[in-house]
Design a protein around this nucleic acid. Structure first.
Lengths: 91, 91
DNA sequence: TCTTATACCGGTATTAGTATCACGGTTCTG
DNA sequence: CAGAACCGTGATACTAATACCGGTATAAGA
């Protein structure tokens, strides 16, 4: 095996990650946030829907900047795993 | 063009990013840190040498956790490192 | 000297991230 | 109702990230 396929756990983490971003986006449209982050709206959609479970670091960083959220909180929130219900993220 | 090739600016950013990680690694060996982060040593080497300029978010997150450093300062450090904030929307 | 361990480098294979294209749905305005 | 304009979505194309293998170089130790 040359490149390990994503495990189900990684995909679930990606789904939680996307749900987190979608929630943080709130009322704003995909195109607006995507443009603010400098990525395409389709990419943002894939990340939010979990179809891109492991996006690039700088993509996430730009997205977090556009959403005004912390990378550490973001990583911590979905790294928690099973207990990702509590979202201590205000904005 | 379907997937924009990495720009020279992105590659330089990757080099700064890798240098930052290498500095943070300090005296510890690559295999040790890579094992702690759950990635292969080759991947860590490529990231450190800048040959993988845009690693996955969770890869970086695991690496930052292994190195006990903040993702936010990591992203901020290589963003403001030597570049005066280029356009977030290249084109 | 020989062995071992670490790091670096090249190539290769395969999955996955990202962008462009094209379509359906909704809302608004004429 | 027609058309535009926006949003979200699916399919497709292509590059990059990740991992494995072999080889090389250097340094420490038996």
């Amino acid at each position: 095996m040359v490149r390990t396929p994503l495990t189900p756990w990684e995909r679930q983490r990606g789904e939680r990650f996307g749900a987190l971003l979608r929630q943080a986006r709130g009322e704003r449209s995909m195109v607006e946030v995507a443009a603010a982050a400098g990525i395409s709206a389709e990419t943002l959609r894939k990340i939010e829907t979990g179809r891109a479970p492991t996006p690039a670091f700088f993509t996430v960083a730009a997205l977090a900047a556009a959403l005004e959220m912390s990378l550490d909180e973001l990583a911590g929130a979905c790294a928690v795993g099973s207990d990702a219900r509590a979202l201590p993220l205000p904005a």
